[in-house]
């Protein structure tokens, strides 16, 4: 039983990262119906920027570890958000009115470009975050041994998700985003500047992805230019699992995918872990064709 709960925390820790990245996929999909394949690479860039900023400013030493990390996170999120907007402007906006799948190929091209740009700038070797940023203590939770850094990462991602949820549900801008997701033309008629909404989505999504990249760097220490491909694929799966376009769905899907992977490793086979995750996904889609929380869209008549 202890092993079961240990695996549950393992799964939730991984899942919270998936969820943060999945939010970027799902928000973009919501308003543009586009799978932003470059999102995973924005996540990678977040991780690399975090490392560079840590090394060049060493904020945690000058203004204390906690405030230092918060400021660092804000800087990374801001920079990745700007980059996200640039990608939108150059690779997606010219394709707004063209067939949907064309934009997917443009997204794939942008992904290849960004991944190789990171490789050429930082080199192909694994890069390492400075050690001892967060004290290497662990907390004993009823016999479960959970490292402090995991709890911090889980808490931070939950805070970000809660903030996003309130923003989308309670503010005027959030309402505009939801309106644009439901029907762009109707939203435009209601006086919503859809282009700005899309830009906003491309600021928020990448910002969250960048934050996730920073968290991966802090928690695991090593980063690599191909990591966005792996994480991006998982996060995309999570977004679909929860019902793409649906924000709570992405959060649920991410956490669930992490837990499915951990439980699959624990009780079936480690080598088949990813296959098990996809298998569960397919089963769920056969029963619920639009994901767990996705709305059943009536076919147009």
């Amino acid at each position: 039983m202890e092993e079961f709960f240990q695996q549950l925390t393992n799964g939730l820790a991984v899942g919270s990262i998936y969820a943060l990245i999945a939010l970027g996929y799902t928000m973009v999909y919501g308003v543009l119906k586009l799978i932003n394949f470059a999102h995973g690479d924005l996540f990678t860039i977040g991780a690399y920027l975090g490392m560079t900023l840590l090394a060049s400013f060493a904020l945690h030493e000058t203004i204390g570890p906690f405030i230092g990390l918060v400021v660092l996170a804000l800087m990374v999120m801001g920079l990745v958000a700007i980059l996200g907007a640039i990608v939108e402007r150059t690779a997606y906006r010219p394709l707004r009115e063209s067939p949907r799948l064309s934009a997917v190929v443009s997204a794939l091209g942008a992904s290849i470009f960004l991944q190789n740009a990171v490789m050429l700038i930082y080199g192909a070797r694994f890069q390492v975050y400075p050690e001892d940023l967060i004290p290497e203590t662990a907390i004993d939770l009823f016999g479960l041994y959970v490292p402090l850094v995991r709890i911090l990462v889980l808490a931070a991602s939950l805070v970000l998700m809660a903030a996003l949820y309130t923003f989308i549900q309670k503010t005027r801008i959030g309402t505009a985003i939801r309106a644009a997701a439901i029907d762009q033309d109707a939203a435009r008629l209601m006086g919503i500047d859809v282009t700005r909404v899309i830009l906003l989505v491309f600021l928020i999504g990448p910002a969250l992805g960048g934050a996730a990249g920073l968290m991966v760097g802090l928690q695991y220490g090593q980063i690599n230019f191909t990591m966005g491909w792996t994480y991006g694929m998982k996060a995309f799966t999570a977004a679909i699992l929860g019902g793409i376009g649906n924000i709570p769905g992405a959060m649920l899907g991410g956490l669930l995918l992490g837990v499915i992977e951990a439980m699959g490793s624990a009780y079936i086979s480690i080598a088949w872990k990813d296959a098990i995750a996809f298998f569960v996904l397919i089963l769920i889609l056969i029963v619920r064709p639009t994901g767990l929380l996705g709305e059943r869209v009536a076919e147009k008549v």
């Binding site: 150059t90 690779a91 394709l95 064309s102 190929v105 443009s106 091209g109 992904s111 470009f113 991944q115």
Partner: peptide, 14 residues
């Protein structure tokens, strides 16, 4: 190659 993919898609959207 990645950049070429984006450019070609933008120039010939179909």
């Amino acid at each position: 190659f990645g950049a070429a993919m984006v450019v070609m898609m933008i120039v010939r959207t179909e």
